[in-house]
Every structure is written in C-alpha cells, then in structure tokens.
Design a protein around this nucleic acid. Structure first.
Lengths: 347, 347
DNA sequence: AAAACTTACGGGAACGTTCCCGAAAAAAGA
DNA sequence: TCTTTTTTCGGGAACGTTCCCGTAAGTTTT
C-alpha cells in the first residue's frame, strides 16, 4: 500500500519557507522566529501532520522498536507480563513487536530472524519449552543486540535475566504443605532443560530434606507446562502410588490438570490430597477448590525486563544483571488448613 | 541507540562493484551476471547482511506494519484472537503493533494516535467497554487508513466488521436452557453501547418469547464483562428474585462471577440454577462445574479480521463487509441434563 | 563489417527527515 | 559609519534503499 501523507516539503511550499525552518519549528528549536513557528505549528496541527517515522528513523539511525518473544499467547502469565513490558516501552517512546514461538525451538529461531529483519534495537525473550540450544541467542549477542531473558531463562548464558526466586518459592510452598500435615508430597516438575524447573524441584527436595522426609523417585514425574500434562502425570502418579497426600506442581496449569485428574478419580481436594501450584494466574482464584499457589509479581516481571533492556540500550557496556523478584504464598482452598497448634512462622 | 549494520555500500566497496548491482543481485534480478550474483549472495550470507527496513520502507513508501487495539491483554479471548491476527499478518510479511486501551475510551484515543505516529498501514480494533463515541475512528476513515472492527464493534459505522452471530448464539443457548426445563432464566447483559450486548440480549428475549415465557425486568441486569461484575449482578438478582432457575451471562467471565456468587450462597449448580456463558474461553472447561457456553471460533475471528484488513490494503475501494462467523453450543456440566424424552433437535 | 540487439553494470535521483554550515538582515557596540 | 554580534533562515549533504536511465562491452543479424 502506498502512503501519501503530508510532508515537511509540502508545508514548506505552502508557507513559503524552507524545509529546514519547518523542521526546526516543529521541533520547537530556539533559532526560529516565534511568529513563523506559530504559523508552522498551526498549519501542522490543522492538517494533522505526522512526521514519517521511517525517514526520521533512517536519519537518526534508530527504529524505536523492540522485540519480544514468548512461548505462547494463551498462557495467562505471558499476557500479563507483556502488558508490563509494553507499558514501559511505550512510556519510553518505543514500539513493541511480539512474536510467539508456539513452544517450538524451530519457530523461536524464525522469530529471532523476523525481529532482526525488522531491525529491532533489543529483544526480550522467554524461551520455548523445548529450547535447549542457545546458538540463536548467542547470535544476537555477537551482533551486539541488547537482550533480556525472563521467566524461562537459559543457564550458563551471560545476559540480564529476570526471574523469581523459584527455589525459595518452592521451598516455602512445600514447607507449608508439610506444616499442614502432608507427608507424601509428589512433585510434577517442568522440562529439565529449563532452569526454572530445576530450581523449583531443588526447593521441593530441600524442603523434604529439612523435614527429614525421604525423597522418593516414585513421587517425582516430569511434565511440561500444560493442563493435559498435569492430568496425565497425575494419572501416572496415582497408578504408581496410593498414599500421596499432597501435590506440588511446577505451575498453575499443571496443578489444574492434576485437580481435574483427581476429581475424575473421586479424590477429595484437599481432604485426601492437597494441591499447590506456582504463578498465581487469574484462574487460580476461580477453580474449585481455589488453588493455593506461589504468587509471582507477573506484571512487575515484565516491567523489570523492559527496564533492564532500556538500561542496556542506554549503556551497552552494562554488566549483565540477574534480577530476582520475590514470591509470596497465596493460601486458598486446595490445601489443608494449617493446624493452629502447629508453628505459624513461615517465610 | 545507534545501529551500525552492514550496508549495501559496504558490500559494494568490498566487492568492487556498484551498489546498484548489489541491490539487484540481492533481489535476484535478471540483469546481473550469475557469477557476481553468487559472490554477492555469498558475501551477504557470510556477513549476515540485513537490508535496513526503514530505508527500504522510505523508498517504497510502505511500513509493512499494522496496528491492533484491544481492550485488555488479560481477557483470554483477545490473547487468542491476537494470535490469529498476527499469524496471518506475519504470513503476509507484516509486523504487528498491539496496543491495549485498558478498557478506557481516553486511552483508546491515545492508542490511535500512537499507531498513526508509527505510520501503520491499517488498524484492527475492538473497542473499550465504555467507548460510545466514534470520532477517533472516523478520523482514521478520513485519513484513508484501512480499518477493521471485530468482536466489540460500533454500530452505524461503515467499516468491515468481524463478529459472531451473537443473536442466534444467544437464542440457541436460551432455547437449550428452556429445553432442559428452565423457566425463570435471568440475563446478565453487557454494556448497552455495544452491539454485541444488545444482540445477545435480543436473542435471549426472543427465545423467551418463542417459548411463551413472559419477560421480566427483574430478571435482567446490566454488567460489564468482568468476573466481579458477574458476582455483584448475581448477588443483586438473588436479592430481587428467589425463583431463578437459570442464568444466561453475556460472557464467560461474567458467568464465572455468577457461579462464584451462587457457590457463596450455597446454591447448587446446575441442580437449582443452571449457568450458561458465551465465548468458550479455555477456563470454561476447567471451572467446577465446567461451564456450558456458546462456543466462538476465536482464532478464526482474529484471522478473518486480519484477512479483511489485507484485502482492504490491496484494494482500498473494497466495500465494507460484515463477516459473521457461526457459533455452536458447548454443553458441559453447569446446565441441567437434557431430558431425553424432550425434543433433541437444536441448532 | 556495419547495424542491431543483448548482457551486465554504474551513475544518480528520489523517498522524508535532520543537521551542519553559511549568509542575509537586523541589532548592538565602537 | 564601520565593525561585531545576534537573530533568522536557506542550501545541501546524509541516512540506506530502489529504480530509471545510460553505456560499455559482447553477441547476433544483415
């Protein structure tokens, strides 16, 4: 499609001054007669003049655009995080191009290419479920494109990262389950290539260890982040083990799936089995029973990622910072009530 | 931030040919020696040359960018619809800039300005809850910017629109409720300034009329599209009326809120009161009991909106088309079972 | 062997900005 | 009155592309 907008030259001709003067007047420069400035402004206002962003960008050698890659749109976490990213970027006068990898490594590579072709000035990325390699991200590094990883980050890679304290969040949550009387706590973990999965699992294991509960391989199973995965994993856990009294899921979606499976088996939540999740998606408050979960500051995660990116844009030499946000435990109905005689101190 | 990429001139100097030849070679033009073409391609590949999108755009007078305005990110409907919009746009080689109005008319106006400043070639918009005026949209029209409305459209405005058959969806759903034995069916409607709300309400009213059930103002209440609104509206309905045996909500979120309120009152769903929603968000299958709802082809709505926009980009003279997608009824657990002796034909 | 045509390439303008530099006019100082 | 300074403005290059046009060779036709 052709655009045919009013240009600075048109205004110059109409007002019988040079384009330089128009340019200066519009940017409210000092060395232009107040009277002509007024005239130019008025004319531009009346005709709704808008500078061509591409011409401006070409001249200033900046695109004022950043890119974001997320695994999927329909994960509520990312909807909210994107909001945080974008609000801050807009405030900085930047546009945001969002891509989704559809949880596929191959698509993620294509996303990176698409963003490079759009000449974005920086990229914020949360990797796909099956992304183990990082060659595509290293490429960005080599090209000097500022980069921020968030939530699902890749290990042993030097770049600013925004995560939550996955380990302590999990530790605290499992501690809480233990305090409510759970002893046979199962864990449905996430893909092992993601740091997040391992940290949450480590928190789970350490909580057990601290309570002198032996770990049991039969109580651990690896899923991905989907509801379906939660259902099938729960199913398998129940087949292998009949004494489970608690579930700690790597994320809320998996917890929802686990709850669904438990309901199908006619198992009461939390009377027979407590269920806990991680993230605190909006849905968590709505399911029945409502889900006890580790609450992440989702919007702030996005906002922080955005801030780190812009900090890098201003100073490319900035050392890579690891930003760890705090979580809290949101107690709802899917876990047993805390026995009031038990200890009531918890982080 | 400054960008310092490889340009066509750099390649020209390195290979000792003119930039014209480089340009031609890269675009695989016919009038360039296969040998030099090979050399240029190889060089570009090796150094990961990417044409400057702004220079190209300035020259070709196109930004290859479209804009989307949605009310909010955290409405699952829009997450999915955006996916449909974007997938198609990407396929067409376009980038997408997404803005959210935060359900505020004022912000929506700012969004339009932001997109105009980004020189988007077209805009897809779903208006905010309280958007009654359309001056900002008319402005786009005046400027000749292709436009498509979807889901929440504004009445008496000539532009391509993508909606579902709200009237028939509602009619069929309320018909179904009646067939399952409901007689006192309440309706929590949406904001009256939106066509969608009125059409769904009309469907509700006509279904009642067709079954010779008198309409009752006490059974109708206006909410917005939020869970909270669903809760408070349900609360009010219960205070005014004790014989309700069915609820038809304008959307799933409102239905979720209504269910929450009913549970708080200890009212059994669907034994005492059936609840039906509209949209079929992913959540609908997860809540307890799972929600019977009118199923919209959400991804396709977005995809269709995108298609209509690109059709307009290709031919600006194209007449404004109203695209109405079909809905189906997704029966789940929140409504009473259909009496097997009753008629089993329904649309 | 001259004419016509093809192949392959270079020069330069253009897209709409910004910005540097210089210059005319007006104001101030001598 | 002549110089110096300030105010105000215009000219033109530059950003990285594309594309039109011209032209030098090489190839075919007469």
């Amino acid at each position: 499609m052709k655009k045919s907008n009013l240009t600075i030259n048109d205004i110059a001709k109409a007002l019988n001054v040079s384009k330089s003067t128009i340019s200066r007047a519009l940017r409210d420069a000092h060395d232009v007669n107040p009277e002509t400035k007024r005239k130019v402004m008025a004319f531009a206002e009346r005709h709704d003049y808008r500078p061509d962003s591409q011409a401006k960008g070409l001249r200033s050698r900046s695109t004022k655009t950043i890119g974001v890659i997320i695994p999927a749109y329909n994960i509520p976490f990312y909807s909210i995080a994107i909001c945080g990213i974008q609000d801050y970027a807009m405030k900085m006068g930047y546009n945001v191009i969002i891509c989704h990898s559809n949880e596929q490594y191959e698509t993620e590579i294509k996303n990176v290419e698409a963003l490079l072709n759009a000449n974005v000035e920086g990229i914020i990325i949360s990797v796909a479920r099956d992304t183990a390699k990082n060659e595509h991200i290293r490429k960005l590094r080599r090209k000097g494109i500022p980069l921020v990883l968030f939530n699902r980050v890749i290990e042993d890679f030097k770049a600013p990262k925004v995560v939550v304290n996955d380990y302590y969040g999990a530790l605290n949550m499992v501690n809480y389950l233990i305090k409510t009387g759970c002893r046979k706590i199962a864990h449905i973990s996430g893909p092992a290539n993601l740091l997040l999965s391992n940290n949450r699992k480590a928190g789970y294991l350490d909580a057990l260890a601290q309570a002198d509960i032996p770990e049991d391989d039969n109580l651990m199973i690896e899923g991905d982040f989907t509801i379906e995965s939660g259902m099938t994993c729960m199913q398998k856990l129940l087949e292998k083990n009949r004494e489970i009294d608690g579930i700690f899921a790597v994320c809320d979606a998996v917890a929802f799936g686990a709850m669904k499976a438990l309901k199908n088996h006619g198992i009461k939540i939390p009377d027979t089995i407590s269920v806990a999740g991680f993230t605190n998606e909006p849905m968590a408050a709505l399911v029945e029973p409502s889900l006890t979960t580790v609450k992440q500051p989702i919007y702030e995660i996005g906002e922080t990622a955005s801030k780190l990116l812009f900090a890098q844009l201003e100073d490319p030499e900035l050392p890579a910072e690891l930003c760890v946000l705090e979580t809290t435990i949101e107690v709802r109905e899917s876990t047993r009530k805390l026995n009031s005689s038990a200890t009531d101190s918890m982080g």
